[in-house]
């Protein structure tokens, strides 16, 4: 027998959410969605959640199982059992509407924001615009997104800053930036380099864990950053940080922690540099400032050789 501890919420009855336990002895192989259906059909018809395909392709049944976003139809209940209990909650970073149903409005607005359609001013050919298999490979992973919101739900950046575009929209942006038929790459990259865009990703990798498909949003964000650097869109802290970091390794084999913050913030960004002062002074007083003369790693010649050989 398993206990399904489900977070319930019905604003028509009470402004507060609460947990309700349902007991169900599920058969072998049952998914979490099978269990919720059984509970709804036999125990409480008011239990509310989204569902449709039952095959992990429609992206409707996103919710949290034991604190992490998943597709209820894709996860076997037995795999979620912890001491006989499975905790089921609505997805995060979105407002609950009722029980496990959340409001996707901010999610869709951010998808819209990245202009999720092909931009190409040239006259379309008589038939379709074709791609080679190699060209498609660049956008293959991002194309598999089913818009379930699992990455958005658990994105740690969105938990603290709602203006962040989020992993789903950024992965979708890569799908168009990397598309050989799209001609708005520079325009897109410039927009994605704005505050709240790709450089605000905190590298936590949570989106890759929660994505039920091979999208790996964090990897797509890294690809966008690489395009940004290639295209010369360097007028932002994130790009300057990556360039300064790499320059420092090229010079000495290891990171120069003294120059990195200043070069990233920008020599003429007086407010930004002023903001660095308190932490800089605190560290200085405690002797935590990196050595004034930056030391190279041994055999740095070989490191430099690798940079040169790779044309970096």
């Amino acid at each position: 027998m398993a206990t399904f501890r489900i977070k319930r919420y019905n604003p028509e009855k009470s402004p507060d959410s609460y947990y309700q336990d349902f007991e169900y002895d599920f058969p072998e192989g049952a998914t979490l969605l099978d269990c919720l259906n059984e509970i709804k059909w036999t125990q409480d018809g008011s239990l509310t959640y989204r569902m449709s395909c039952r095959s992990a392709i429609c992206g409707s049944c996103g919710m949290k199982g034991n604190g992490h976003a998943l597709l209820a139809c894709q996860r076997q209940a037995a795999h979620l059992m912890k001491d006989g209990v499975i905790t089921v909650e609505p997805m995060g970073n979105m407002t609950p509407i009722k029980d496990l149903v959340v409001d996707f409005k901010p999610f869709w607005e951010k998808i819209d924001q990245i202009k999720p359609y092909l931009k190409n001013k040239e006259k379309p050919p008589e038939k379709e615009r074709r791609q080679t298999p190699e060209q498609f490979k660049v956008i293959d992973d991002a194309s598999t997104c089913i818009m379930c919101g699992a990455c958005y739900s658990d994105c740690q950046m969105l938990e603290v800053d709602g203006t962040f575009l989020g992993p789903a929209a950024l992965a979708k942006a890569q799908r168009f930036v990397g598309d050989s038929r799209d001609t708005a790459t520079l325009e897109r990259i410039k927009e994605l380099s704005q505050p709240g865009g790709m450089w605000d990703c905190t590298h936590c990798g949570e989106c890759v864990e929660r994505c039920p498909k091979p999208v790996k949003p964090f990897d797509r964000i890294k690809e966008l950053m690489a395009v940004g650097l290639e295209q010369g869109v360097h007028g932002n802290v994130g790009a300057r940080h990556a360039l300064s970091f790499t320059k420092s390794i090229k010079k000495s084999g290891c990171l120069n922690e003294a120059t990195l913050p200043v070069e990233s913030i920008g020599y003429f960004n007086f407010k930004g540099l002023f903001d660095l002062l308190p932490v800089g002074l605190r560290m200085l007083f405690k002797g935590k400032i990196p050595p004034l003369i930056h030391k190279s790693c041994e055999d740095v010649k070989d490191v430099k050789r690798i940079f040169e050989e790779l044309g970096e």
Binding site: A242, T246, I249, G253, L255
Partner: peptide, 15 residues
């Protein structure tokens, strides 16, 4: 002592 920086997730943004 002769190992270079791991890249810290930042250098892959470049290459």
């Amino acid at each position: 002592k002769s190992a270079a920086c791991c890249g810290a997730g930042v250098m892959p943004e470049k290459s």
